[in-house]
Nucleic acid binder design. Sequence first.
DNA 1: AACTTCTCCAACCGCTTTGGA
DNA 2: TTCCAAAGCGGTTGGAGAAGT
Length: 276
Amino acid sequence: MGRQPCCDKLGVKRGPWTAEEDRKLINFILTNGHCCWRAVPKLAGLLRCGKSCRLRWTNYLRPDLKRGLLTDAEEQVVVDLHAKLGNRWSKIAAKLPGRTDNEIKNHWNTHIKKKLIKMGIDPVTHEPLDRKTSSPATTSHSVVTADSTSKSDETTKQQQSPQQSDVRDVLFDGSSPTGSSTNTVSTGGSSSSSSSHDQDPLVKWLLEEDPPTGDEPWLNDFTSSVDVDEFSSIAAGPELPWDGATDWLLDYQDFGLGDSSLVDGYMINSSNGAKF
DNA sequence: AACTTCTCCAACCGCTTTGGA
DNA sequence: TTCCAAAGCGGTTGGAGAAGT
């Protein structure tokens, strides 16, 4: 049986969002929340489907989003987690406050993947590409996992190679913020995790399936810096900052998100990518 | 200057998962 | 237990701007 479309295609607007639509959506959600996405467009006076509203909110309008390119440290987290989790972008995004799965996925496909390939590293298996030619068995495995998507993520996870730590060393030129293997995720599977790494709460956190609880010490700066009330009062107030364009959205960071945040235990200055 | 190619990313599509009746 | 609606998720597409010729 065919699945019903999420919305009536006729009379539903598609394509890029206008500033007016953004404003309507933000005003509505900040005032009412989003009890039911399907009802949101109707109640907010938008000619969009609920799915489109949800995506627009989660990927672009949310006040706690960071903007701009991923920093080196964030990239490293993405590589680490991708080695462990595969293409489970939402899980990866959950470990990077202020980043969305879409953003990470795009960044992976446009930047990180190319970097890895350029360095002779298979972005799927995180193994050196020349290993494939020398190890046919591995190759066939890799091809299978490369062509599959989330459906084979479990398989992918189990096939991660111990070489993956080398991959990160190469990718970040051995000058990662941690400066050592402290940040290296043990990728030998859950049954073979390195004891030394297990001592590191950061690594434990990376290995956790659950999203951060907000109690993680390295998230304190981030969570405390998000003043949603402030954002809400600005966005919902009588004098809205919109001037017909969405440029103001780029200034979200000015609400406290852009100065610095702690990701993966690193202090990251998101405005210039500087590492501390 | 004009055209083509490349790059990036917002948005869409459709499948899977979840939760309630 | 089954069914269905809603939400979540990951892959893909298309358009805009940048870069190259």
